[in-house]
């Protein structure tokens, strides 16, 4: 490490701040995971201590796996998240390419219109969405959720991706055109790989709210068949008694899939953050 650009006190200071932040950010997650392995008495008696041989108990997990069809809920959540993510990225990238690449009448206006959704929460339209889904017979289907989440994710995706696509070299696209590549090939083979870091960013920002959402599953797809994990966990949340063991276990399990997806995307993310710097 070069001494010219780093001094010891500064390094320590920076690490102290980062470590503090990490601890604060991870604390609730660790608390949830820790307590999910404890008995009810353990959770209430000493919520902040890790499970000991006395308090260790897998009752939460056995309840989750025994009661309700949690594996099925997981599957629903995963299907909804992955499908929405796929459509958001595909349509978002396509719209962004059109907006950044082609000059047509109303281009700017169209861009503004598509980005408007960033500022208007989609939940304001819940009633209309519900009516729409009832009319089209999509209530209690995963399709309903996928459609809504795709709509919810598109504005930000288009906004971010079109900025990135504007930076892709025109010469490269033109070279492709001269070599006879179709616009689709140029989009999929030349442009998409170059904006991959941006796609990963968008993927992470899109994925997490979808996975965690309770609102739309509750309204559009509350049936046993279509329940998502967050909705399924509500099963243990009663008006008078709450089964904390089961809730904590369900939440701990729910972290896993997003964590895996995040790890996949973050490899791209890190490359994106450093790609401009080390050219």
């Amino acid at each position: 490490m070069s001494t010219a650009t780093r001094s010891l006190p500064r390094t320590i200071g920076a690490h102290a701040i980062l470590i503090t932040y990490t601890v604060i950010a991870l604390f609730p997650v660790i608390l949830v995971v820790m307590n999910s392995f404890k008995s009810r008495a353990g959770i209430f008696g000493a919520p902040l201590t890790p499970p000991t041989t006395k308090t260790f108990d897998l009752i939460g997990y056995t309840t989750v796996f025994g009661q309700g069809d949690f594996f099925h809920y997981f599957q629903n959540s995963l299907v909804v998240t992955v499908a929405s993510l796929f459509f958001v990225l595909l349509f978002g990238a396509m719209a962004a390419f059109a907006l950044s690449e082609y000059r047509f009448r109303g281009n700017t206006l169209m861009g503004l219109y598509l980005a408007l959704g960033i500022m208007i929460p989609i939940r304001l339209g819940t009633v209309a969405i519900l009516q729409l889904m009832v009319a089209s017979g999509l209530v209690n289907t995963l399709t309903a959720l996928i459609l809504v989440y795709t709509a919810q994710g598109l504005p930000l995706a288009i906004f971010i991706l079109s900025e990135f696509m504007k930076q892709v070299s025109n010469d490269l696209k033109n070279a492709g055109r001269i070599d006879g590549l179709s616009e689709y090939t140029i989009f999929f083979r030349l442009v998409l790989p170059l904006v991959r870091p941006a796609m990963a960013t968008v993927a992470v920002f899109t994925m997490i709210p979808i996975w965690n959402d309770l609102w739309f599953p509750l309204i559009l797809a509350p049936s046993e068949e279509t329940k998502t994990v967050t909705l399924g966990a509500q099963l243990f949340l009663g008006q008078f008694v709450t089964n904390w063991n089961a809730i904590l276990a369900a939440l701990s399990l729910a972290i896993l899939p997003v964590l895996i997806l995040y790890v996949i995307f973050s490899r791209q993310l890190i490359r994106g953050i450093t790609s401009g710097a080390v050219k």
């Binding site: 070279a175 055109r177 001269i178 006879g180 083979r189």
Partner: peptide, 20 residues
């Protein structure tokens, strides 16, 4: 006529090679 069918070839200032 689309660029690919014009019987031309172009060399760009930024090289514009396919990175992959």
């Amino acid at each position: 006529t689309p660029p690919a069918k014009r019987g031309i070839a172009m060399v760009f200032q930024t090289y514009a090679l396919y990175p992959h």
